[in-house]
């Protein structure tokens, strides 16, 4: 059972940023709510109670409520977290301050546009297998060393929640920065034997200051990634690898979407 019994009945204070950019009358402001804590309460439970009881138009995003879909990143007392798996019991003074994640376009209150940002990133790093091989799906699949499949899976666990981007100083200064999520994606396809791309190909995509050379190694991404991806190691590895690519002086122009 949840080890929260001791906190049952505690009065919690929620301070939540509210702002609707599409409404010219609306100004960003904090609103305070008080809720009685329940057993095993998560921010998913708390925010839905606030919506039902006090603020029916409070905007926030949840889908799976199990830490799997990456919808609910938000700033909780200054730290970007997945709200659905954040337990209120972990806040001893009972004060929880919620703000939307920075670096993404705000829709309203705690709801931000992460999907289009991530699609832009996926298109920029061409987040799909590049192969000239014609695959006949009636035949045996290509053999992959089990350890290599596992290593690919390890990086494929990214859920595109955007927490790495909202933890990133470079992303704040350079809106075109591809983020740890994009660099991890490059590392993922670099490992995958199905993908025939070379270091030169990856250099074309992210070999500049809005890509692999933009990272200042502050590593907020590594500290906050809810899936504990080895972002520090993979960014360093890809940077070494791409730093060794000779720039042929072809005047690479990199188009950024999103």
């Amino acid at each position: 059972m949840p080890d929260t019994a001791q906190n049952k009945g505690r009065m919690l204070t929620f301070e939540i940023l509210q702002y609707n950019p599409s409404d010219p009358q609306s100004k960003p402001h904090m609103v305070t709510y008080h809720l009685e804590e329940t057993l095993g309460m998560t921010l998913f439970v708390a925010l839905n109670m606030i919506r039902e009881k006090f603020e029916p138009d409070l905007a926030f995003d949840f889908v799976c409520r199990a830490g799997i879909c990456g919808s609910c990143g938000m700033m909780v007392n200054g730290k970007p977290l997945l709200a659905c798996r954040t337990l209120t019991k972990d806040y001893p003074d009972g004060v929880i301050r919620l703000m939307p994640m920075p670096s993404f376009k705000l829709i309203k209150d705690l709801s931000v546009v992460t999907g289009q940002w991530m699609d832009g990133m996926s298109k920029r790093v061409e987040s799909w297998i590049h192969s000239k091989e014609e695959v006949d799906i009636t035949k045996l699949e290509k053999r992959i060393e089990p350890e290599v499949a596992d290593a690919t899976f390890e990086l494929d666990r990214c859920i595109e929640c955007g927490i790495c981007v909202s933890s990133c100083a470079t992303a704040l200064m350079r809106p075109d920065f591809v983020g740890a999520v994009g660099l991890n994606r490059i590392a993922r396809f670099d490992i995958d034997p199905h993908d025939e791309r070379t270091a030169e190909d990856f250099y074309e995509l992210v070999g500049d200051d809005s890509g692999i050379f933009g990272c200042m190694t502050l590593l907020g991404c590594e500290d906050n990634c809810p899936k504990n991806l080895p972002l520090q190691e993979k960014i360093a590895y890809m940077r070494r690898k791409l730093a060794n690519v000779k720039d042929t002086g072809g005047g690479l122009e990199i188009r950024v979407e999103g």
Binding site: W128, V135, E141, K142, P146, D150, D156, F189, H194
Partner: peptide, 18 residues
């Protein structure tokens, strides 16, 4: 079986036999 082989070719890192 064709679906899973297609997905493998699209990069789904299925766990493999050792």
């Amino acid at each position: 079986p064709k679906a899973i082989r297609e997905l493998a070719a699209w990069g789904v890192p299925w766990t493999r036999v050792k």
